[in-house]
């Protein structure tokens, strides 16, 4: 379906607008990552963008040439400064680091519930950003990492998204995924049948951290450069808003929310520059895209509080309402 969508897009929009849709695929992949942990466990995490940030910064720094790094970021630890990796290697490294970081964070934090969990993961995001921004031995400081090879095209972005969806799907159909979903529906009953909440949440958290690290690397290879502000508050809230607008409790909801909002977002921001759609020329007033987007999200939430997907899930035999966990 996504392939058809991509095909359809290319016929409707001009070349320059198409380029912008990479962004939508990558952001949607992030939504799917957060879904793997938050959607299945029912515990909202504000911290996943820190795994995206780790992945993006690791991939960005290691794909820069050594002499270039020496010139721009002289403070870096020697093993970061002197090494250079190919594209695929940076993706793998980012996934590994994201997973490792999520594991460490998760060991401490997945025992928390509800708001405490939300604020604690938010604190992780704050620390990650603060360290990346100010500790020049591991990060670029207040500067951005320039000149990362832009290898994420439309195909690569779509492949990354599909990969994330497939992994998320396999996980939620697996025994571990079902156990975690059981804890979401009724924590006490789940414990009663011998499910260890801590362990199941940690598995999901680590898996989604690794996925987020990977997506972060894909993201930096799409952006070409990255600064700490690009992977901080705005992205966190945007990704969470997409997840909730789509519907937190199904993979279909996460995908739908991510794709629809980021497409609209792209269209609107392109619209500010003047957009030709179906051979008509539209121009929106400057910086009105944020206003329209926020208003749309509010309307969706008011009319469909359970999200666009409203509990529907996709399966191998088409769409259906989720009736079992």
């Amino acid at each position: 379906m996504l392939v058809l969508l991509a095909g359809g897009l290319s016929t409707v929009f001009s070349q320059s607008v198409q380029l912008k849709f990479h962004n939508a695929f990558v952001i949607t992949a992030m939504v799917v990552c957060v879904y793997v942990s938050s959607g299945n466990s029912g515990v909202i995490s504000f911290g996943h963008v820190s795994f995206v940030a780790i992945g993006a910064f690791a991939a960005g720094l290691f794909s820069m040439k050594a002499q270039q790094k020496g010139a721009v970021f002289n403070d870096l630890f020697p093993f970061i400064k002197d090494n250079h990796l190919g594209n695929l290697a940076t993706l793998i490294l980012a996934a590994a680091l994201g997973g490792l970081y999520a594991l460490v964070v998760g060991i401490a934090l997945v025992r928390l519930n509800g708001l405490s969990a939300g604020i604690a993961t938010f604190a992780v995001l704050g620390i990650t950003r603060n360290v990346l921004r100010n500790w020049t031995k591991v990060g670029p400081g207040a500067k951005s990492i320039p000149g990362v090879e832009e290898t994420t095209g439309l195909t690569q972005a779509l492949m990354a998204l599909i990969l994330c969806i497939v992994v998320a799907y396999i996980y939620q159909r697996s025994a571990a995924g079902r156990r975690l979903r059981a804890t979401r529906e009724d924590a006490i009953a789940a414990q009663g049948v011998g499910i260890r909440i801590y362990r199941e949440r940690l598995i999901a958290f680590t898996l989604s951290g690794a996925m987020a690290g990977f997506v972060g690397a894909v993201y930096v290879h799409f952006l070409g450069s990255v600064s700490t502000d690009q992977v901080y508050l705005d992205l966190t809230f945007l990704v969470l808003a997409m997840l909730v607008v789509g519907g937190v409790d199904s993979l279909w909801g996460a995908t739908l929310g991510g794709l629809s909002i980021s497409f609209i977002n792209t269209l609107l921001s392109e619209g500010e520059k003047g957009l030709s759609l179906f051979r008509q020329k539209f121009t929106l007033p400057t910086s009105s895209s944020g206003i329209i987007l926020a208003a749309l999200m509010a309307i969706v939430l008011l009319t469909r509080p359970k999200g666009l997907a409203n509990g529907r899930e996709f399966g191998l035999r088409g769409f259906r309402r989720r009736d079992s966990i």
């Binding site: 969470l240 808003a241 909730v244 400057t286 944020g290 206003i291 926020a294 939430l301 008011l302 509080p305």
Partner: peptide, 24 residues
Amino acid sequence: SAAPATMLVMTFAVSFLLRSIAQK
């Protein structure tokens, strides 16, 4: 009576809306 996450994101949408207007 909506889920807490829905309400939270709604308040975020309102915040985002007001900030966008201020920005504009």
